[in-house]
Write a protein that binds this DNA or RNA. Structure first.
Lengths: 342, 342
DNA sequence: AAACATAATGGAACCGGTTCCACTTTTATT
DNA sequence: AATAAAAGTGGAACCGGTTCCATTATGTTT
């Protein structure tokens, strides 16, 4: 491994000063004779010269890197979000440092530390909900923080991009109520998360609107990681008066829930109507095809990147932006009328 | 956005020289009195000081960043690979720059450029198959390149981590043959990819071993992106003598294939036995649960990171490493005996 | 107490770029 | 042709760390 040529090597080989080479490197930063430019380019080519980003960033750290801090990427929802964010960023010449927290606030704190040291211009994150002080400090330092999917109410100064969680859970629940269900259950994310809380709120709204009785036993929160969704299902099925319909509002637990249902021999939609928050292509291939709530991941990604970078470019709007996009309820065949009581 | 404190600010505030602060920052790089260390730490805390990675890397670029160049991350296979790679890297204090090529060699070239400029210590990639010269140059420059999942035969000097593609396709095909199938089809990736080629080779081996006739009409290559898998299915079904069994060896096209089969009203496994290369939890939830080839993504990730970093730490082995891990054939219910000819 | 090893600290060069400013050469103006 | 304006170039400081080496403070040995 021979060592890399530097700008001075190039300058020497081309018979010019480093200032000139730098100008060639940064078009528009100053005049360079066409002939000189050509010669310098040639030399760079033959020497295999590539300017070091680290050195360039020393002077004035340009917004060339963005931190993406997700819970984990094995979850297809986050994976697709990551994919879109990366594409969106690339299209603007920005690179993405991908980090994962595994829903662990200790890890989150560590990741944030390295992002600070890298002086990333912006951070797009699904916060665990803790580390308040770090987030606040980050924001005060001028880093553009954008929470996506979830948020932290205690930090109203941070930009947020989410789907309309309340409304999406409300409409899903309302659909079930419209089919005549009176015992509708919901499995959501942990109540410590805004998605968990908001979706339960929407669920309640729908029950109220449909004049249905609320039963807290029908509301189950499951952690994002692990297989808590399965246990929630079992608990629901063992209820004295079990539900006839179920909203799975925890994307990470959808397969765990379905697995347990299959195991228990529950037939969908005859014995249980189901709506899931998840739009994997697999949902359509199931028997029966599942009625789903589709989250517009591309919009989430687009707005996140936009916010994370717009502020960086000195927008400095007073108010924090809160962007709420609508999810889409797609009716397929996992919802039916409840069978009459025996 | 006030500007960040530098090491000199800390030094001044603590009443010491920058050299001392640097030593505090890098334990083991020199002696510092315990009292001094404490004072410096305090000052760093109150000033909210974080050393800039860019500046640190200027001196001797330490192997602190790794490039991960994948086709795309919306594909769950790559997503899980990314997740594992990131975790593996984090556990060693390494950050990951995630980039995607969308299977486009033009984009690949651009991404590689930025990785070179960042002086990443290693690159883990699923190469498109082109850009030979760039890969070669990268390798010659001393960057540790590791191809994962796929490889480029024309670049034998590069480390590779893959599953045993030939064997996995062979065993899947053999299982179908053992069930009495004589017309077995395969939908693989493009023949320009090593995975595509190797899996077809394994398929052929199995046919030979089972003394079955080979029919090139039963071999279909589909691009990774798009919905080419669907068209391949249609073509197979319209054959004069259609297959009774199918191996879907193109992970990215599995759902497209299944969708088309569902659309065509083909019942699995009665009319068509199916084995897919894919181990999403959804495969088990299908009706019937699908027989699959499971790729040990965690091993792929572990070995990739290990190789990408081991070389960096000056291992400098003469031979390139080729690590081939075994995939696992998991029998469920999508394979049955062919129904007798009518 | 003298002699010497060791610990602790500071000064300054250096990493590889960018940029300001001064200086020289070319082109335009009248 | 004289002069002003613009284009092209180079020297050197600077960004924020690391590190070598010299210097001073502390501790140990005989």
């Amino acid at each position: 491994m021979q060592k890399q040529p530097t700008i001075r090597d190039v300058a020497a080989a081309a018979g010019v000063s480093v200032a000139v080479v730098s100008r060639v490197l940064n078009p528009g930063s100053g005049p360079v004779a066409a002939a000189t430019r050509g010669r310098v380019h040639e030399v760079m080519e033959t020497l295999g010269y590539h300017p070091r980003t680290a050195a360039r960033e020393l002077k004035h750290g340009p917004p060339t890197t963005l931190g993406l801090l997700l819970a984990d990427v094995s979850n297809p929802f986050f994976a697709r979000l990551a994919d879109q964010v990366v594409q969106e960023a690339h299209s603007r010449g920005i690179q993405v440092l991908l980090m994962t927290t595994q829903e662990d606030d200790q890890l989150e704190a560590e990741r944030l530390s390295t992002l600070i040291e890298r002086r990333v211009s912006g951070i797009i994150a699904t916060p665990t909900g803790n580390n308040l002080e770090i987030w606040k400090r980050l924001h005060d330092m001028g880093t553009d923080v954008v929470f996506v999917d979830r948020s932290i109410p205690a930090l109203p100064e941070v930009d947020v991009v989410t789907i309309n969680n309340t409304e999406s859970a409300r409409s899903a629940t309302a659909l079930l109520a419209a089919h005549g269900h009176r015992r509708i259950a919901i499995i959501s994310g942990p109540v410590s998360s805004t998605t968990g809380r908001d979706r339960i709120a929407g669920y309640r709204e729908a029950l109220v609107a449909a004049h249905l009785e609320q039963d807290d036993l029908l509301i189950r929160s499951a952690a994002f990681r692990g297989v808590a969704g399965g246990d929630a299902v079992t608990a629901l099925l063992n209820l004295e008066d079990p539900p006839t319909a179920l909203v799975v509002a925890n994307t990470a637990q959808v397969t765990a829930v379905l697995r347990r249902l299959a195991h228990a021999g529950v037939s969908i939609p005859e014995e249980l109507s189901v709506i899931v928050f998840e739009d994997s292509p697999w949902t359509e291939l199931m028997t029966p095809p599942l009625t789903i709530v589709r989250q517009p991941i591309d919009l989430l990604a687009m707005h996140s990147v936009q916010l994370a970078l717009s502020n960086a470019s000195g927008k400095a709007s007073g108010r924090p932006s809160v962007i709420r996009v609508d999810a889409e309820l797609i009716e397929r065949s996992s919802v039916a009328r409840p069978k009459p009581r025996t």
